[in-house]
Each structure stands twice: as structure tokens, then as C-alpha cells.
Design a protein around this nucleic acid. Structure first.
Length: 403
RNA sequence: GUGGACGUAGUUCAGUUGGUAGAGCACCAGUUUGUGGCACUGGGUGUCGCGGGUUCGAGCCCCGUCGUCCACCCCA
């Protein structure tokens, strides 16, 4: 027996319905905010992810499904969605038009990780990317939209926000932090010492208590923002408060991908294990030009579909369509004709084997239709159908033509 | 990549100091050619993850391997 690869899952029945429901709900809401569907390739040049996500990140460093294809190209299964959408945006030369563009997407992402709860090798994200809008109102709008999606899905969440600064204020702060960390590096754990070199901001959210003790006096980015970043962050706080969206400022919130700047946010749930981030995103104003486009401010987010699947409250299922069956084999051809016609407008389940009444009714329970339609000896003889409405339990025998 | 737990029926699980596998649910058939969900009766559907070893004998003990789960790391 061949099973799916490690960390990859088949979705059927309730699970696939949940998946569909999430995508439908998120798409519907995103469209209301002006987002249009974009589909981009799953396979991209490896260089795209190295340049956008960043070589220092774990994603690029050790988690990519990367290989050389038959044409000698260095290619990679996308580990996240933003890079591909930005690439598509630039490929279509949309960066040369002064028009704001908003896209949503959903689909599989691949990371070669060790699977655990909420962490798969093939997982699915729904995401949005907004290009050309630098206003902090857009940051606020996006966060509002995500809250709305989670509300519509019946999911509880906590929102964390932070500002990562910009090219003006981040580099000096970073240098500042590195020198602070270097002075106390003897007190810090092994991981943190590694992070001082690879990604010093990450040291700030180390879970080691001893590290946290020594980090109390560390320089904080929020106190070192430039005027623009500072006022935008204050404005974002005001807007969220005014809109009644609960949030906390998490100065240690660092997004894992190199391209983020200014607003960073994360939605977390405490009900799904250690992998608690259910959505994350932020601004990436420099990424478009970094991938050879014209400077274009942008902001985006992605939510992990599998991570929220078990949190979603599903709407009640309703009876739908028809179950059709015959109690004598000779009636089956007539059934097929009726079914074909009904299927132009309704859901129809046809049982091809003729069997007893009771047996058919069991089939009816499984198919959960609104109507059961049966043909037995009498009906066949008289050219009629037996129809039962399973909601009202009303039964009728009608002429075939009336159906 | 590191650490820990666990792999028995479709599923959830039981299985004694080692003696050739069992229960609930699900499923199928029947009671019942004409009223389903309920009830009753019958049916086990299995490479005990895989491979080796110890033993007269392994689901159980040992080694290896694959896989799942959980945590770290990291992230959606």
C-alpha cells in the first residue's frame, strides 16, 4: 500500500468540507475588500525565494523542496505565497502603472520540516497582497478584514502587533542591539548566540528564562522608530482601538521572513498546540524593488488553513436534492432518464441496484436528500413515482410526467 | 536537525509472568417488496507497521527500520 508522503495529507468528507468552507468564506470577504483572485505557479526559480524570503531564514536555509529539473534549472516548490505573487505583479509590469492592485490566493505550500501538530510539509494558505498603498489605513483595513474572516468562521483569536521599522530606523537599531547582545553574550543561550549573527531581533523572543532576564534592559525598537514609523504605529493603535479590535503590542514579534518592515502582525489561537500562529503578515515596502520592480509599497498576510480547520464552526448541513431508487430492476432505465433531467438543476443520488424498500430508506438516510423518489412494481405498472419529502414527511404518488 | 511517546480490525482501544487475537462504534446482510433514523439476529472485515534476532513457541522480549504523535527549533 502506498501512503501519502511524510507530512502530507489527504482531505476527505468533513475535513475537505471544512477546507472548502474556509476558502469560500475568506474569498467572499476578500472580494468585498476589492481583492481579485490570482493563481501563480507552485514551482518557481529558487533564486526568487532566496532573494525575497532571505537566505538567513530557516525556510530558505534548510526547508526548501529544491531540485534541479530536467532542463538544468534550479527550481523550488514555493514555501510561501507572497514571493510568487510579487514576482507575478512585476512580471505583468503592474509596477509601472500608478494603479493600486489587490490579489488573493490560496493553495499548497511546501516546507521540508519535521511534522508535528499544526505543522505539515505540504500545507495550505489563504493570503492577500495589496500593492501600491502606503497608507497605514491599509494596514488597519487588512487587519480588520482578517478579524472579520475569523469572526465569520467562528474562530476565537488574539491579535499581536508590532512595528519593525524601516530602512531608516531599523539598521541603526539593529547595530545598537547587536552591540548590546555581544556584551552579554556569555549570559545568553547557545541558540541566542547563533541568532546574534543570523537574526539578532529573534533573540528578543527567546523562550529561555535566563535570556529573558538579561534582555529586560535591551534597547527596544519601538523606542527607536523614526518619525514616520512612529506616527504610523501610533495611528494604527488608535484605529484599532476605535474599531473595537482587541490587540496587544508584542515588541518581540518578529516575522520569520526577511522582507517585512513597519507593521507586523500575527493572529494566534491558544487552542491548537505549540504552533499557535493562525495568520501572520505585515508590510513589505521594499520587496517589489528588491525583485527588480519599481518601488511599490505593499502589505500582505497569509492564514494557515490546516491550523484553523479544527477551530472552524461549520454551519448546519441541510437536506438537499433527491435520492432515487428502484425496487424492481426494470424501473432503472426510467430512473436514469429522470435523474439526468433533474441534475440540470438539483443534486441527485441514484442507487443503481434494485432492492427492498427498507434498504432504500437506509440509503436515503445516508444521502440526506430533501426528497426520496422510489419506483416499485405498482409504480412501474401505473407510470407513477412515489415521492417523500423528508423534511415534512409528506408522501405522494405522482405521474412520471409531473416530476 | 534535537528530544520523548506510540504503531493491534474501517475507527477507538483491550490483550495477564511469552502459549497462535478480542470489545464498543462503524460497516454488511436479514427480520421486512412498501415506511428510514430505533430494535433484534447474524457476519470479524487482521501481513498485530516492516525486517531480522532470542525462544519449542513472539502482539508481548531484543536490535534495526519506516511511520504517526508531542515538544524544541522555526513558522501559517
Amino acid at each position: 500500500m502506498i501512503n501519502p508522503l511524510r507530512g502530507m495529507k489527504d482531505l476527505t468528507f468533513e475535513e475537505s468540507q471544512r477546507f472548502e468552507h474556509i476558502v469560500n468564506m475568506a474569498s467572499t470577504i476578500a472580494k468585498r475588500y476589492g481583492y481579485g483572485y490570482i493563481e501563480t505557479p507552485i514551482l518557481e526559480e529558487t533564486a526568487l525565494f532566496k532573494r525575497s524570503v532571505g537566505e538567513s531564514s530557516d525556510i530558505v536555509g534548510k526547508e526548501m523542496y529544491q531540485f534541479i529539473d530536467k532542463g538544468d534549472n534550479d527550481v523550488c516548490m514555493r514555501p510561501e505565497g507572497t514571493a510568487g505573487v510579487v514576482r507575478a505583479f512585476i512580471s505583468a509590469k503592474l509596477d509601472r502603472q500608478p494603479v493600486k492592485q489587490k490579489f488573493f490566493y490560496y493553495g499548497p505550500m511546501f516546507r521540508y520540516e519535521k511534522p508535528q501538530k499544526g505543522r505539515l510539509r505540504e500545507f495550505h494558505q489563504f493570503g492577500c497582497e495589496s500593492f501600491g498603498e502606503a497608507s497605514v489605513y491599509e494596514d488597519f483595513t487588512m487587519i480588520t478584514m482578517i478579524s472579520q474572516i475569523f469572526d465569520a468562521l467562528g474562530i476565537g483569536y488574539e491579535l499581536k502587533i508590532n512595528s519593525l521599522g524601516c530602512v531608516e530606523c531599523m539598521p541603526p537599531y539593529r547595530q545598537n542591539l547587536v552591540s548590546f547582545l555581544s556584551e552579554i553574550n556569555n549570559e545568553l543561550c547557545e541558540d541566542c548566540n547563533r541568532r546574534i549573527v543570523t537574526n539578532p531581533i529573534r533573540v528578543l523572543d527567546c523562550k529561555n528564562e535566563k535570556c529573558q532576564f538579561h534582555l529586560v534592559t535591551s534597547p527596544k525598537l519601538l523606542n527607536n522608530l523614526c518619525e514616520c514609523c512612529d506616527s504610523d504605529f501610533i495611528e494604527l493603535n488608535k484605529l484599532l482601538t476605535k474599531a473595537g479590535i482587541k490587540y496587544t503590542i508584542d515588541t518581540n514579534l518578529v516575522r520569520g521572513l526577511d522582507y517585512y518592515n513597519k507593521t507586523a502582525f500575527e493572529f494566534v489561537s491558544n487552542e491548537i498546540g505549540a504552533q499557535s500562529a493562525i495568520a501572520g503578515g505585515g508590510r513589505y515596502d521594499k520587496l517589489v524593488e528588491f525583485l527588480d520592480g519599481k518601488p511599490t509599497p505593499a502589505i500582505g498576510f497569509a492564514l494557515g488553513i490546516e491550523r484553523i480547520m479544527e477551530l472552524v464552526k461549520m454551519p448546519e448541513i441541510k437536506r438537499e436534492g433527491y435520492y432515487m431508487g428502484a425496487m424492481v430492476p426494470e424501473a432503472i432505465p426510467a430512473l436514469m432518464t429522470l435523474a439526468a433531467r433533474k441534475r440540470l438543476t438539483d443534486k441527485v443520488t441514484v442507487e443503481f441496484s434494485s432492492k427492498g424498500f427498507k434498504s432504500h430508506m437506509k440509503g436515503v438516510d445516508k444521502a440526506y436528500p430533501q426528497y426520496a423518489v422510489l419506483i416499485g412494481e405498482d409504480e412501474l405498472k401505473n407510470g407513477t413515482l412515489w415521492v417523500k419529502n423528508l423534511e415534512t414527511n409528506e408522501e405522494r404518488t405522482i405521474a412520471i410526467d409531473e416530476f
